[in-house]
Amino acid sequence: MSDSSTLSAAVAALPGWFTLDPVRPQLLGTRCTACGTYYFPRQQLFCRNPDCAGETFEDVALSRTGTLWSYTNAAYPPPEPYVVKEPYQPFGIAAVELERECMIVLGQLARGVDLARLCIGQRMELVLEPLDDGKLIWKWKPAA
């Protein structure tokens, strides 16, 4: 986790799920020390690989870039516990494939990303942005 963080954990929508590095944030997962399987959200008790009896996990920050697997948007306000600020602004959602972890992670698209300009397979990076209620969450945006 970055020491340069100037953000307090209280502002995270899901405290402990990601670093609060404002520039290069990362999702916080775990990795089975026996078979190498990554977990996000964090798994700390039992490995879910059916051939692995692993019960020890190391903390690991996930890759903060990956390729766009698919994308969509939420044209209508989602129900609670999503908090909607009126007037409702539709937001995008992306599924991004992380190569090292062999895993797809969902997240909102950063504000201002135009769905029409996205292309499956393009590079994406993780950023932090507030949800409608001001709490920070990870989002995906095209890599610079």
Binding site: S70, N73, P78, Y82, Q108, I120
Partner: peptide
């Protein structure tokens, strides 16, 4: 968690469709 992030059932269907 997924609803907290604004991810509803149609989100998943749409991701598969776009794919």
């Amino acid at each position: 968690v997924r609803f907290r992030m604004g991810i509803t059932n149609p989100t998943y269907f749409a991701l598969y469709a776009r794919r």
